[in-house]
């Protein structure tokens, strides 16, 4: 009981409670992600003063505004590029980018592949709800085949992205996928990824109750949680090519797929310049201390 109360206090300390209620619809999965993220921050004993959360635009991107930590609500698609600047200018920060599938992999796709390629030390969390929620349920590069969106009124015929595969191919050091149903695994995965150095990526399938589910008559939020539960197969260490989720008939492959070591951007830069420039190289350590 005391433990629960203590956790509640800590959680509330990490929320801007005067901003509640939040904008998300009842039954939406983004709140679960927020909850899991904050619990992971607490459990991993991460110094919350050193965490900076960068977001783009969309339902998920509103997440930084509810957390009582340094938060940046930037432009659509650009959370990772902004976070790259934060991290390189202050290597002591734990930089996190959180966003939806449209934000992060459609308009922000270029930044995603390059941040992974460069192995920028950041945790990237993508909440995939298979459509654009905030703008009213349009099709996304993640929309499953034959599922409808307002801009795909007869169903989508495009191939959706397999995000873990892209992250893996581009060089991410940590790749996992869970659903909003897998709250425990998700929290543990975030805890683990917070400790990783390098580009870490977690995709979370989530239910968009009012748009994707309603439009497609897939049921309510709870039905989708059941769908996630019944159709998921945990395959830790699976080849990310197996993580395809092209249609609602596919199995949802979840688990931790990639966990490897690779020097991050700063380590590569410092190591290389030290080698070629020798004593002429002045290693950049971080910004000067200010009064606060």
């Amino acid at each position: 009981m005391t433990q629960t109360l203590e956790l509640k206090d800590k959680m509330e300390g990490l929320l801007r409670t005067n901003r509640l209620p939040h904008v998300w619809c009842s039954g939406c999965g983004i709140g679960i992600v927020l909850n899991s993220f904050l619990r992971a921050l607490i459990a991993s004993e991460t110094d919350e003063n050193k965490v900076a959360v960068s977001c783009g635009i969309g339902c998920t991107a509103r997440i930084s505004g509810y957390m009582n930590i340094d938060g940046f609500h930037m432009t659509h698609g650009r959370a990772l590029a902004f976070a790259t600047g934060l991290k390189l200018a202050n290597p002591a920060l734990k930089t996190v980018a959180i966003g939806g599938d449209g934000d992060m992999i459609a308009i922000g796709g270029n930044h995603f592949i390059h941040a992974a390629r460069r192995n920028i030390d950041m945790l990237v969390i993508c909440v995939n709800n298979f459509n654009y929620g905030m703008t009213g349920g349009q099709a996304a590069p993640t929309t499953t085949k034959e599922s409808c969106g307002t801009t795909a009124p007869y169903g989508s015929f495009e191939n959706p992205f397999n995000l873990p595969f892209i992250a893996d191919a581009c060089g991410a050091v940590y790749v996992a996928r869970w659903t909003a149903f897998h709250v425990r695994q998700l929290q543990l995965s975030i805890q683990e990824a917070l400790k990783k150095k390098g580009f870490s990526f977690i995709e979370i399938f989530s239910q968009c109750t009012e748009l994707f589910l309603r439009k497609n008559k897939y049921g309510a939020g709870l039905d989708e949680m059941k769908f996630f539960k019944q159709n998921s197969v945990i395959k830790n260490g699976a080849d990310t090519r197996e993580a395809e989720f092209n249609s609602r008939n596919d199995k949802i492959v979840v688990g931790k797929f990639v966990d490897r070591e690779r020097p991050d951007f700063k380590e590569s830069m410092d190591g290389y310049f030290g080698k070629v420039l020798k004593d002429k190289f002045i290693r950049y350590e971080g910004p000067l201390q200010t009064k606060i």
Partner: peptide, 27 residues
């Protein structure tokens, strides 16, 4: 590298124009 700081060649000008703003907010 001989002064102490960071240069990064970004993937496009959109990224260039926001990566600098991340650096500014980091100090």
């Amino acid at each position: 590298p001989k002064v102490g700081g960071v240069f990064i060649q970004m993937e496009d000008e959109i990224a260039s124009s926001i990566v600098i703003q991340g650096a500014v907010w980091a100090g």
